[in-house]
Design a protein around this nucleic acid. Structure first.
Lengths: 352, 352
DNA sequence: CTGAAAGCGCTTACAG
DNA sequence: CTGAAAGCGCTTACAG
């Protein structure tokens, strides 16, 4: 079967057995060399390495994991809202960097705020026997992950906390960040500040609204329900709602947008009406080119690189055996003023 | 061993054997039910399903692949330049959608233009025995993938073609798209059009430069080497180079930027000098907010969704057994005028 | 329609 | 330091 040559025709893939035969050693010796066990005669090891290289041998992770004590697949899952959104993509990349340094591969998944899809993808990850999962859940009840956790798979929640499940968590300080931004607008005289919120089911949308309220309460400014828009997911949805608000008889004088897409929708609606120097705007989550718009867009910037790194560090610590109580990390936000948020109220507009 | 209850203490994970014992059938019958083989007594099948559900059984893909004839891991790899770049991320998402519809999971990887990293990641994918690979290579010689191909793993090249390897390919029509954009600038009277190119080693950078040259040749306008900048990877690099060009005694009157980051760098440098209504700019590859800048940025838009879908379709066809000769698909670009590219030459500037 | 035996490519546990 | 046997969780190939 072993002919000593390299070409074996289509479909051929060398196994340890083939390497062993070519190197004239036992299977077990090949296994020792491949796994860098030290107790191998250098000459034999060399023969094995040459044979492996000649046959283009690549060990089979799946087979190895099957028999291994720890059952490690050398794979983790990173399951986020939408990998094509810059926030998710940046977290993914930060995790990828730490994974690659450990020789671990990353299975990526996007939930698109669909709990059903979350259930399907996590089940699939279970069938792949991933070594751990970093997840920004779309669902609100995470008890179903309990079984997987009990089977020894660590979970780290990122951007959104677990519900009815105990697990490590990495969050932005959404509430404080939002409160600071809104307090800034209030300090410039604004009393009618519109709120653009994402889906009500999303933790961060709730937190950012709480921050918006906190700032109002602290300043003794009432929140007007008609200035609060929720369940805005897309640029277009925010664009339409902001247009409607601005066209009202007594429009808000400032806007606080709860995420990057709604900020962009707000910019479009404001610009279309030529109000970019009249209506103040602050967005949550930074975005590329925010500084090149006119005026530059003031934002509460998150730190997705730090979030991804932190989540990966927690996950790998668990994979390495850390069984301490679950941890919760808060990543600070940064308030970046660029102009759009520094427009004071125009007294002509402040009719309440 | 089987106690009929659900809780088994930490570390427990049900196997087919456990399910078989609980359902009082043989292992093989469980296997038949899990794999939806039709020849199972409905009553037995029901017992198996109930037992599987009670034990939270999830089949082990790795073990199944090991014994299976086809050896399928239900995993593909999508290896691109940088998953946090919108172009790569959009391709990734398009592939993910098609993969999820087939119950296939996606291992993602970013090469960052590092051939060494490409070698490591592709080797890792081989060890995971992925069923197929979609790749935008960083290296220039792809013979090393021959072994993997011969072992039956299909490769689809996206954005960049294979060198010294025969494989399916999906490309943008970079050369024609670039030529059209530059011809547009020439038609507006520009004779000094700077070119901002990515790394010379990158196929698309070469093609876009060829398109830039084609348009010059067709119009009988000479290309000035001093207007050609290469190996620009980042926003900052483009920003610095464009600044230098604009500050020269006789600056170019227009700029053609070869990718989205260099376009953004060019915008920064132009704006900083207040030249956004004087210097024309066209970019290759569209980007979010290009229409909200002032003036809006004219671009040659690619279609990464179509590219990802096409690549996935080709890959899954191969996985399903298509062994026809390799295919090459060209995805058209779209020229989108928004203002920055429609600035005619100012006669005062056209000193040659 | 159902099941007992063998084997996928590896590692474990053991013997020499 | 080296190797033969058993077994990980499944599917295949076969017998009933």
């Amino acid at each position: 079967m072993v002919d000593g040559s390299t070409g074996r025709g289509p479909g051929f893939r060398a196994t340890m057995k083939d390497v062993a035969a070519l190197a004239r050693v036992s299977l077990k010796t090949v296994s020792r060399v491949i796994n860098d066990e030290p107790t191998v005669n250098p000459e034999l090891a060399d023969r094995v390495r040459r044979a492996a290289s000649q046959l283009h041998y690549q060990p089979n992770f799946g087979a190895s994991a099957l028999r291994r004590r720890d059952g490690r697949s050398s794979t983790i899952a990173v399951l986020l809202e939408d990998l094509s959104n810059p926030f998710s993509a940046t977290i993914y990349r930060a995790v990828e960097e730490m994974a690659i340094a450990r020789g671990v591969s990353v299975l990526g998944g996007s939930f698109d705020e669909d709990p059903q899809r979350e259930h399907e993808i996590t089940a699939s990850m279970s069938r792949h026997r991933v070594d751990g999962v970093i997840i920004a859940p779309a669902s609100r009840d995470h008890q179903y992950l309990r079984q997987e956790q009990m089977a020894g798979v660590p979970f780290v929640f990122v951007d959104r906390p677990p519900h009815l499940l105990d697990a490590d968590t990495v969050l932005s300080d959404s509430r404080a960040g939002a409160a600071r931004a809104v307090a800034h607008l209030i300090s410039l005289g604004h009393r009618r500040i519109a709120f653009l919120g994402d889906l009500d089911t999303i933790y961060t949308a709730q937190e950012r609204f709480q921050g918006y309220r906190d700032a109002h309460v602290a300043a003794g400014v009432p929140v007007r329900e008609s200035d609060v828009a929720r369940n805005l997911r897309t640029i277009d949805a925010a664009y339409v709602v902001v247009g409607r608000l601005l066209d009202a008889p007594v429009p808000p004088t400032a806007i606080f947008a709860g995420q990057n897409l709604s900020t962009i929708g707000a910019v479009r609606a404001i610009r279309e009406r030529g109000l970019q120097r009249r209506v103040a705007l602050v967005g949550f989550d930074d975005f590329l080119l925010a500084d090149l718009l006119e005026p530059g867009v003031t934002v509460v910037a998150q730190n997705p690189v730090a979030m991804g790194r932190e989540a990966a560090a927690l996950l790998f610590a668990r994979i390495d055996g850390d069984d301490s109580p679950s941890k919760k990390k808060i990543v600070e936000t940064t308030f970046i003023t660029r102009g759009s948020g520094e427009i004071p109220v125009d007294d002509r507009d402040n009719r309440l």
